[in-house]
Amino acid sequence: MLQGLHLSLLIGPGVPVPAPAAVVDALSSVQVTSGKDSSGFQLTFSLSKQSPLLTTLLPAGYFDPVTTRVILVATVAGVPQVLMDGVVTRQELNPSSDPGQSTLTVTGEDLSALMDLIDLTGFPFPGMPEIARVYLILARYAALGIVPIAIPPIPPDIPIPTNDNPVQWGTDRSYIRYLASQAGYVFYVEPGPLPGQSIAYFGPDLRIPVPQPALSINMDAASNVESLSFSYDGLQKKIVLYNILDPATGKVVIPIPVPNVSVLRPSLTARPALPLRLEQVDDAAKDNPAKAAQRILGIVFNAASAITASGTLDVLRYGRVLRSRMLVGVRGAGLAYDGLYYVDSVTHSIKRGEYKQNFQLSRDGLISLTPKVPV
């Protein structure tokens, strides 16, 4: 590996352990994607005809889907970070007639994939609000090192047992994601902070307000980004009309305009983009007051951003691993696009002698509110 970079691979059926030398030597590339709702990984191994991976490990089930757990830890400048804690979901073998050109590709997802295996449609939750259902479901996965952090929807929708007894439909993951979408929340499983530990988060799409070192472009020797491009989509922002029925008569439709302003992600710009579209929520009349309030808050929580940016950086030149769901500064792009951004997703691409990241950023307008970003 590169100087200043160390990648640790723990793998194995059931309990992951440090990979044997034959597996590490055959590993040619690693890719890890960290997105808004889920994360995934892909390991590529270069094989010879007599490779132990072909003759022993593969037949013995070392890379079998679901049962094989994978943990990846990257240490950059002495700071370790758990990039992935997940399970194998797919393997592909590509034999080649050329010596040493055969490859084995192992693909997987984070531990939330284990929540998507069994359909528990009909499982009852008598008199339980959403937050109690989420904690009850996530308790099934405590043995995997998953610690739940769940924030109750606002306002809580508590069913009355004599009138309504909610039941689960679909798998655990699909049901929790459904509950999250109804409240405008997100649900994901974040690996770390230590190997073998993960956090299952159910709540609003919060971003850690600690800025990471700036991404610098067009600054000669101070540049630490290989490429960076921006896009301004004027049709992303919109005003939503939430139509409810008059509670007195139950017949008169009352439209409630919901602005495209996120209360959880403050504006980072002096010129926020104006909403140019108007949409209506047509199925809102059936909602009770608590559910209607949840959905309205959900629309506010998930306000779209008009400005997006994408790029590529070299981790060792940047000096650290860029993390998603946090803030990062941008400089060198000019007055309109410099400033702070939210990091939406990051893809790690690691090969021997190379560690790069592709990233996606977003914010709501032009011209930064902050005169200077952390370098």
Rank of each mutant, 00 (worst) to 15 (best):
L72D: 07
A77P: 12
T68E: 04
T68N: 06
D64K: 14
V73E: 11
L72H: 04
V76C: 06
V82P: 11
R69D: 03
T56P: 11
L57G: 14
V88D: 08
L72W: 03
V82W: 01
V66A: 11
V87T: 11
P80N: 04
P80S: 05
V87R: 05
L72R: 09
D85Y: 06
Y62A: 15
V76F: 00
L57W: 11
D64C: 05
L53Q: 10
L57A: 13
L54I: 10
T56L: 15
V76N: 06
V66H: 11
Y62C: 13
D64R: 15
P80E: 01
P59M: 09
L54Q: 14
Y62R: 10
V87M: 11
L54A: 07
G78H: 06
V73G: 12
T56C: 12
P80A: 04
G78R: 04
F63E: 13
T75K: 07
T75W: 00
V70Q: 08
T67H: 03
L53F: 02
R69L: 04
V66P: 08
V88N: 02
A74W: 02
M84R: 07
V76I: 13
P65W: 01
G61L: 11
A77T: 10
V82E: 03
P52A: 13
G86E: 04
V82N: 00
T67I: 15
P59H: 08
L83Q: 01
D64N: 15
A60N: 15
A77C: 05
S51Q: 11
L53H: 01
T75V: 10
Q81K: 14
I71G: 10
L53T: 04
V88S: 02
L83I: 03
P65E: 04
T75R: 12
S51E: 05
P59L: 05
D85A: 07
L54W: 02
V70S: 04
V82M: 05
M84L: 07
D85I: 00
Y62V: 13
G61Y: 06
L58W: 07
A77N: 12
V76M: 03
D85E: 11
V88T: 09
I71P: 10
F63D: 12
D85Q: 08
G78K: 06
P65M: 12
S51K: 09
P52H: 11
V66K: 13
P80K: 00
M84S: 09
G86V: 02
P52T: 13
V88P: 09
V82H: 01
G78Y: 01
S51C: 09
L54M: 14
G78C: 08
P65G: 04
